[in-house]
């Protein structure tokens, strides 16, 4: 059970004690003994209900500890359970064996080393490693490798290159035009997955406001299953990094992150931190604290990216 730091203020004489409260008895100060501690989440407020014993009389104090962002609240309440392939998750025919699990009779097992998610009557396991598995609509960052009359071939990090048909780009291209004049080998594009079939060659399209060529900058690779964590609930994590580093950042579901401008090096470290600690709760706070302290230290240093030619 997680321990909380709680500041308990006694109304009468304005004394306050600070200590940790947990379900087990904890002596907070010589005079105040915590008998019981519970936390409850209502809307976006985290309340701590502490029963304190004073002079042998139990006194119940409800303390609003903090108003937290939705993202953090959910994380605080959910426990992180790591499972490995073959871990028995449930022995129940009424439970849905979701992604990342498989069923054998009434037993549901994990397929991956990953995070266990139990919601309502469905169990899923989110793998903590693995190659990119394309889904329809995914935004991906790809590199043009070659072209023929009607397609560009794009490396998106899957075993087979994806194809970008001439009809799928916003530019108007004449018959027999030289395709390399529009997208040449080595160009980086932000595109979307058109569809996923049994054909290992994935078709892409770029007729979307967000799709475009990406000039200069650099691409950082992260494990694709960690991309949702990098983006964060409603984009909170990636916006935090963008704003703090003053960088333009595009995130591809294929685990490629394009960074340009601002403090690119700090952005990379923040991105790598999210990748490494993706399984932890309270990650947004951790990254936020890290960025804050780094920016304070770097105030005197010149931003190197201003000196680089792009």
């Amino acid at each position: 059970m997680a321990k909380l730091s709680v500041k308990i203020t006694k109304k009468d004489d304005k004394k306050s004690v600070v200590g940790t409260a947990s379900k087990s008895k904890t002596v907070v100060s010589k005079k105040t003994e915590v008998v019981e501690a519970n936390k409850a989440v209502t809307k976006n407020k985290l309340n701590v209900i502490v029963t304190v014993k004073e002079n042998n009389n139990p006194v119940r104090i409800v303390k609003n500890v903090q108003t937290v962002k939705k993202t953090d609240t959910r994380r605080e309440v959910e426990e992180t359970v790591i499972v490995v392939p073959g871990d028995l998750l449930e022995d129940n025919l009424n439970v849905l064996a979701g992604l990342g699990t498989y069923r054998d009779g009434s037993k549901v097992y994990s397929k991956y080393t990953g995070l266990l998610k139990k919601r309502d009557h469905m169990i899923t396991v989110i793998p903590l490693n693995g190659v990119y598995v394309p889904k329809k609509g995914d935004f991906v960052i790809g590199e043009i490798k070659s072209s023929n009359f009607s397609n560009w071939w794009v490396d998106i990090g899957t075993a087979f290159n994806a194809k970008l048909p001439v009809m799928a780009v916003p530019e108007f291209i004449e018959r027999n035009a030289d395709l390399s004049k529009f997208y040449k080998n080595g160009d980086l594009v932000f595109a979307r997955v058109d569809s996923v079939t049994s054909d290992p060659v994935i078709p892409l399209f770029m007729k979307d406001r967000m799709c475009r060529k990406l000039y200069h900058g650099r691409v950082i690779d992260i494990i694709p299953t960690k991309v949702p964590r990098l983006i964060g609930r409603e984009g909170t994590m990636i916006h935090l990094i963008k704003d703090s580093c003053k960088s333009v950042i595009n995130v591809g579901q294929n685990g490629r992150v394009w960074v340009k401008g601002g403090d690119e090096s700090l952005a990379e470290r923040a991105i790598k931190m999210v990748e490494m600690f993706a399984y932890k709760s309270g990650l947004t706070d951790m990254v936020s604290d890290f960025l804050e302290s780094e920016l304070k230290n770097n105030k005197s240093k010149v931003s190197v990216s201003e000196n680089t030619k792009s």
Binding site: E143, N185, G186, L188, L214, R218, V304, N307, T308, S310
Partner: peptide
């Protein structure tokens, strides 16, 4: 390696790796 990354390394090598 992605061409963009190759260019990035080449261009910045004198100042930072």
């Amino acid at each position: 390696m992605i061409e963009t990354n190759k260019n990035y390394i080449r261009q910045n090598i004198a100042i930072k790796r």
